[in-house]
Design a protein around this nucleic acid. Structure first.
Lengths: 366, 366
DNA sequence: CTGTTAGCGCCTTCAC
DNA sequence: GTGAAGGCGCTAACAG
């Protein structure tokens, strides 16, 4: 039966010092790269270290410096291409500054998020990038109070005095949907992964925003600007579940007076929407126009090529890391929202609304 | 000018002990959850801790226990869906055991890999999952020698006495290509991201394997079994570069005696291949059959749906983590290769070879 | 059950 | 330029 073996004793500075025949402090100085030592002793210490296979103990070093050279990153799911890219952005900037990234997935579960943040506080990460799942930020405030800077990624939070890095969600959504209304679409559905509960909570919590809320607001503004009544709004929340998004679109498209266009607010919703449209044998863009939020590596592989609102996801992550690095360096600038610009990429999945939408039906299973 | 501010002093156990009017050790016991304390004192300590906002210092704890409850994961690029899924697999299993995952991207650069591994050793991670970029494993041996268990993911390494988790690459590739030869294809191209240099090195280093080598071997076996001469082998190495993969396929397909089928060994190669085929206006699968290694979320969204060899990527990562956990628990089982089964998913991108392949040309730019 | 006392490995005064 | 001694925050023997 394997017993929880404690790791073997490692070579330490005293070991090296003894082996080199110098004092502990001297060995520490050359191995730590501070203070000074004569070329001769340096040589001997280095030789002894190499011989014994000495390796710095970063834990002990952290204990003194109070810095772990580590950034905590809390996202919903690294498997999601959006977060994967964002993490890469954070990681690249961090690595350049000699920091490493510790990852935590929350699956949009606020409890997991709190647990992850607490764990990061205990581990004394030097900074925290968080994609908050809910609208509560007490745990983030606590992190900040304990001296750990926090930057919100992709989502801002109402009231919190926190740095955040987001895109111009409202404008981008508005522009995208306006492109649809200007082509005669009046029945435009929005498929979004965020749950209405989160949405309401974000709204209720006050002044500020949560990404999906912003995108929905942009959608509504575009409809209003086109003189489309509020009763014609079609919004489905499908909770980061591709199958549910598919089901929602299936339902929408096979009903009377079906939408002639779909706007999706994230890549999971986009995937599910396209599943449904494929299964319905819908001819894009003639039967239905589609615009997705966030570009994807496969967007130009499907037919027609998908029109999207593209976000600079890597940059978002990179900027979050930079802000953190600045704060770690002692910056006390007032926390604020940093908004990056998204780009509308007009490809081939939008077209004028059909005069009389062709009815769509699920073909009977073979 | 912001000065590298050391983090503020945090509340420590002595602080809590004083505030609760108990001895340091007592406070430590209840806060650390070991030893025993009377309900009354426990109460008071907890209250004091809450009041002062005490938070365990995991760094100090690690210093004593010698364990950081951390797994280092070294991959080529988290942005790549394959690695993202693998990381998620590792992370889930690790999280369940109370460990967190530290990430490092190498971009297939052996130097970056060595640096990352060394950094992980210095940080005293409890275990290491590595997708080795080269065939050299001295740095991994060093990690093991220093008491850190290592598991190779996705790629095995010749000669190294290391645990590894891989799929049945050779058989899977052989079966996939055999599916092509059985349908009359004789001109079958392989597009692979791995560079020939790596390949040769892996081969040279001895007995064992490296994933791409295995897949190529499977390809060759299938050709041989079908009586196709070695001179008909078509292999392009495109170095994890989608654009280069596209260019390679473009070149191949516009030449005389073009391939009628393409087998790609990873998702980057698949993406580039499909780019090229789309640009050539090739009609899949009639003009060209395609089989990709590794399934993708968009594989059923393109027309025709992509036939693939699907790997249990999450499981691969999860198993790697489990092996590590076992070793951390003291297991001394002989390191070995763990092979998981891949699945051939026959969708719509393969068809019999055309009798007379239609010439493919890049349409002139509009 | 509780308090006192040593360290974990390193950095940092401070004398020499 | 070099060595000795103290402490970072916690756990682990010990006594009491």
């Amino acid at each position: 039966m394997p017993q929880p073996a404690r790791p073997p004793r490692r070579v330490t500075i005293p070991d090296v010092a003894r082996h080199a025949g110098v004092g502990q402090a001297t060995a520490a100085r050359v191995l730590g790269g501070y203070g000074s030592a004569s070329a001769a002793t340096r040589e001997r210490v280095l030789a002894a270290a190499a011989e014994l296979g000495y390796s710095t103990n970063a834990v002990a070093r952290s204990m003194i410096s109070g810095r772990t050279h580590t950034l905590g990153v809390v996202v919903a799911d690294v498997e999601n291409a959006y977060f994967a890219r964002a993490v890469r952005g954070v990681s690249d900037v961090a690595a350049r500054a000699g920091l490493q990234v510790v990852l935590a997935n929350t699956d949009e579960d606020a409890r997991k998020e709190r647990a992850a943040v607490q764990m990061f506080v205990e581990r004394r990460v030097d900074g925290l990038v968080v994609t908050p799942a809910g609208s509560d930020h007490a745990h983030l405030d606590k992190a900040i109070a304990s001296g750990i800077p926090v930057v919100l990624l992709d989502r801002a939070l109402g009231g919190a005095g926190l740095d955040s890095v987001v895109v111009d969600n409202r404008d981008a959504a508005q522009a995208a949907v306006a492109g649809l209304t200007s082509r005669g679409h009046t029945r435009i559905a929005v498929i979004t992964s965020a749950s209405p509960a989160d949405d309401a909570a974000a709204l209720a919590s006050g002044a500020d925003i949560w990404t999906t809320t912003e995108r929905l607001t942009g959608y509504r503004q575009a409809l209003r600007a086109a003189g489309i009544p509020r009763t014609a709004e079609i919004v489905r929340h499908t909770g980061y579940d591709r199958a549910r998004a598919r089901a929602a679109v299936l339902g929408l498209m096979t009903a009377d007076d079906r939408p002639t266009a779909v706007f999706t607010t994230d890549n999971v919703a986009t995937l599910g929407t396209l599943d449904a449209l494929r299964d319905l044998d819908a001819h894009l863009p003639d039967d239905v126009s589609v615009i997705g939020f966030d570009d994807a590596e496969w967007a130009t592989l499907i037919r027609p090529r998908l029109t999207v609102v593209s976000q600079p996801v890597q940059d978002l992550g990179g900027l979050a890391a930079e802000i953190l690095l600045r704060r770690i360096d002692g910056s006390t600038a007032r926390p604020r929202r940093h908004t990056l610009r998204s780009t509308y990429i007009d490809r081939e999945s939008t077209a004028p609304a059909p005069a009389t939408p062709r009815p769509l039906r699920l073909p009977p299973p073979a």
